[in-house]
Design a protein around this nucleic acid. Sequence first.
DNA 1: GGTTGTAGTGACCAAGTGGTCAATTAGACG
DNA 2: CGTCTAATTGACCACTTGGTCACTACAACC
Lengths: 220, 220
Amino acid sequence: MLMTSCILSFVSDESERETTPDRTDSAGDRAPRRRRNPQASRAAILEAARAVFAERGYARATIREIASRAGVTHGLVMRHFGSKEQLLISALPGTQHIPELAAGDPATLPQRIAASFVEQIESSGDHALIALIRSAAAGDEAPMRLYHALERSAAESYRQIFSGPDADVYVDLLASLLIGVTFSRYVAPTGRLAEISAEELIAYLTAAIAALLAPVLPKH
Amino acid sequence: MLMTSCILSFVSDESERETTPDRTDSAGDRAPRRRRNPQASRAAILEAARAVFAERGYARATIREIASRAGVTHGLVMRHFGSKEQLLISALPGTQHIPELAAGDPATLPQRIAASFVEQIESSGDHALIALIRSAAAGDEAPMRLYHALERSAAESYRQIFSGPDADVYVDLLASLLIGVTFSRYVAPTGRLAEISAEELIAYLTAAIAALLAPVLPKH
DNA sequence: GGTTGTAGTGACCAAGTGGTCAATTAGACG
DNA sequence: CGTCTAATTGACCACTTGGTCACTACAACC
């Protein structure tokens, strides 16, 4: 169920600094060669990969476009990551511990879930969930495995917050709602959900989550 | 919002009969040529297209595989439909009038929405919504346009069932839930939602929809 | 300053794609 | 039965893709 970006926080892999200048690539006496800086290259490639995977999904994302955005050649991408699949695995985040949403007042739990979700995904840099949904939807092996791994680990943690025999199902229903909202607002922007402000979205989502989870919410 | 398969009923295009025998294609003295039957060919191609688009999504679906499943050559597919995009448009359903869900007892409206949704998508032949979600998620132009067109027309109709100033948003939230459930159960089968029976799913969905829509449900 | 490991390049490849088209031939019509 | 139309084929094309590799030249180290 993934619990969407509530649980997606980057392990933040590489140093992510952007020392290197963009390459012209079209200019041309032979070699306007990029300054050597393997770490910066890796970071630039990963950042570009996240963006491109989010925009195009796994199948339509091309190594050449990722390389071009990172200001390197596609040969270098292959050198650093070996394959497109490995690049995806490196670019997308691993599961992190579930934020201690359960800690606060149970009455405000829905509000905190909604806010955490919207804020994380709204923060510009975080295209991970969108990329994952896009890519998993395409049906390729690699993203599908990634998706399932994240889902399993996230579900595991979330299941402990709620009680009752049906807890699993309600966790999945909540996840479905969040995935659907992500789809309607970011993947295929559509309807009112794509138009309203983040604050409004949080408000509506809070109400929806509260209603949805009522049967399994911890009693206050 | 699409309201998922509640509103997706095929205009049922072609005659869909399956007179023609499968081709061996590998056997070989020149021409084990298919019996001429353009309507049957079109129908077979469309059926194959629906299945392949649902399994692979637009980007990864290939005309050759569709042709092969339909028992024809990919040249014939091109002849009949002109382009891959046109094939998609022809294969996927147009919006139909919203079934008269609003007619019955308002108290059972959530139950009818849930049942209508699950039954339609569970009926084996109907891969339309899955294909559409897969393809739109991939971000290709053609399926995205199709998706938006369907969404707009469906939202229009559904909006009239509910009342209140926030009706649009709640319609979209419901759609998001259904899209998310479709995703979790069919596109990237995951968690309990992918395991439980159709009857159980309907039961849980009914509860979820009732809770979700409570603020805008017609008073009984 | 020379040596050297390797980051970075760009030409190359095989496979697969959507799309085109001339040639075949099944079937309808006289 | 002969004629003609068009459904169907399969060879073909240009292009893109992921992946390989021999080569270049930057920068660190002695």
